[in-house]
Design a protein around this nucleic acid. Structure first.
Length: 513
RNA sequence: GCCUCUCUAGCUCAAUGGUAGAGCAGUGGACUUUUAAUCCAUUGGUUCAGGGUUCGAGACCCUGGGGAGGCACCA
């Protein structure tokens, strides 16, 4: 259900018609607009330019929250917030205001503020922003309050807030009108606090390891770094097609070639694929590259980044996965993808097997196979069909076949596999890392395989990035690389099961007004 | 893209095919220590849109729209 209030009143005569009947949203807005006129007529600006506060509400609570019941102090404070609740008992009004840090009650006495100001305060609406000068006190029941001496309207709300008790449940409205969601739903605010703490934690951890944060192009002339369908766009004056990035890998590794040694980017990334509880068309990936390191270093820093982020965001490394507590500080098992697939199928699988044998296993498990797929790709499909869903607790799935890992270095002990891993939690891929392929000749050959796959009809296959090859020809040191899906990690930490809960403005169809 | 579910007042929700209701918000009134304040009174509806079936549709059918879950694709 989309918003109806405004399209209920497309014409001005409709507004006045509703206003005449005395209710409805249009009438409510009329009523509040009329209050604005009254305020202006009385010489009050309902939208003043600034307000100087002395304390946030959390600071008020920290400093005076311990007062015994019924204590009045002479400690002056100036606070600001949005009116969330109002309790009017005649010559005394209680209001609850909230700022970013918390909530505090206002104690407003007619005898203190005077008759005229009291009337003005009574006409304040839920949702209005106010600045309050007063003193700290507690009521007889012990509720910390600011005893108001003066209240200034800082911004008038013309539109009523959602239900003060039930909040805003309609998911469509919550995501479209995120402002309303954030005003009324504590959990919504909490999810984004967790996300912020997670990101800030990542930056601290990476700085501690000597990583440099960089920004690379969003507009790419070539698609590369991941197998995904891109968004396409066009630059007018250059008259050239451009792609929104599906990964930042190839640019960051150019920086490793350039000698930057340790770089990372927290990168908004775009993939022109389905929308689901786990997928948004634009999402955030943290990618890092570290010279002289390999995949084992990448697994170690993955564990450190994520457990530290949990501790920083939640105060604990214990998260809940499907209702079960999982301590991220416990070691994460490492299992080869081909072993998991073999167990899932009950048949020993390896990409060196004859393709016909692998296809037979796929047929036995009703796994669809494309003609152009090699054994490695089919084994990955078998892993996804038979094993992936059962990985609930954190696990590194390692050793992906070369065929599906065009940028990863071949395993030093097995020419059919790569030194690659993916972190899975709750059957979702959270991270992907490997020892980087730095041999320009081999990289060119791998790209040519990609191009062949694209020509064979795989529209997710990459193209040959000549400039990237040229960079490798200058020499890239041995390097480990890692990508972490920040939205999915935020989901894990916030304990939510849809990505829309951790993206402030998820992609939705345009609203019909 | 396909399947299923869903859409009623600003918000949260009711209404065996038979007069569209409640709580909150709003309005008027009472109340100087409330806590979702309480009490009395009260305004407010193109039931997502458009067709159809029916004596009668918020409900049943069809088409369209939004959203949610699932499948597919992917992270």
């Amino acid at each position: 259900m989309s918003e109806q209030d405004d399209n209920n009143a497309p014409a001005p005569d409709r507004d006045t018609a509703n206003a005449a009947t005395g209710s409805g949203l249009a009438a409510e807005k009329e009523r509040r607009l009329a209050l604005l006129d009254e305020l202006r007529a009385a010489g009050t600006n309902p939208y003043p330019y600034r307000f100087d506060r002395t304390h946030t509400l959390a600071e008020v609570r920290d400093r005076w929250g311990h007062l015994e019941p019924g204590v009045e102090t002479d400690d002056a404070v100036a606070v600001a917030g949005r009116i969330m609740l109002k309790r009017d008992s005649g010559k005394l009004v209680f209001a609850t205001i909230r700022d970013r840090s918390g909530e505090v009650q206002l104690f407003i006495s007619k005898a203190v503020v005077g008759d005229d100001a009291f009337d003005a305060i009574k006409s304040l609406d839920l949702g209005d922003w106010v600045g309050v000068a007063g003193t700290a006190m507690t009521t007889r029941k012990g509720e910390l309050s600011v005893k108001a001496e003066r209240i200034d309207l800082l911004a008038k709300a013309i539109r009523p807030m959602p239900d003060k008790w039930h909040g805003l449940h309609d998911v469509d409205t919550r995501f479209r009108q995120r402002y309303a969601d954030l005003i009324i739903n504590d959990e919504a605010r909490h999810h984004f606090e967790v996300r912020h703490e997670m990101t800030a934690s990542f930056r601290r951890t990476l700085a501690g390891h000597g990583f440099i944060e960089v920004e690379t192009p969003v507009l790419h002339p070539e698609v590369g770094g991941a197998t995904a369908r891109p968004f396409t766009t066009h630059h007018n004056t250059l008259d050239m097609p451009l792609y929104l990035r599906v990964a930042v890998e190839l640019y960051l590794k150019r920086l490793i070639v350039g000698g930057m040694e340790r770089v990372y980017e927290i990168a908004r990334t775009f993939r022109n694929e389905g929308v689901s509880p786990r997928h948004n068309p634009e999402f955030t990936m943290m990618e890092l590259y570290q010279a002289f390191a390999d995949w084992t270093d990448m697994m170690a820093i993955t564990e450190e980044l994520i457990t530290t982020a949990a501790r920083d965001a939640l105060g604990t490394t214990v998260v809940h996965v499907r209702g079960e507590p999982v301590d991220l500080a416990d070691p994460w098992p490492r299992r080869r993808l081909i072993d998991l697939a073999s167990e899932g199928c009950g048949v020993e699988l390896h990409p060196s097997m004859p393709i016909a044998d692998v296809r037979r296993v796929a047929a036995d498990h009703d796994v669809h196979v494309e003609e152009r797929w090699g054994a490695g790709k089919i084994i990955e499909e078998l892993f996804e069909a038979t094993a992936e869903a059962s990985i609930v607790r954190p696990m590194f799935v390692t050793g992906h076949p070369v065929e599906i890992s065009p940028l990863a270095r071949v395993d030093r002990d097995d020419p059919f596999l790569t030194e690659r891993f993916e972190l899975f939690v709750e059957a979702r891929e959270l991270a992907n890392g490997y020892t980087e392929l730095n041999d320009p000749v081999e990289q060119r050959a791998r790209f040519e395989d990609e191009v062949a796959a694209k020509e064979a009809g795989d529209d997710e296959a990459g193209s040959l990035d000549e400039d990237y090859i040229r960079a490798l020809e200058y020499g890239m040191p041995p390097t480990g690389g890692l990508g972490i899906g920040m939205d999915r990690l935020a989901m894990l930490l916030a304990g939510v099961d849809t990505i829309k809960e951790v993206i402030l403005f998820p992609t939705l169809r345009p609203e019909v007004f």
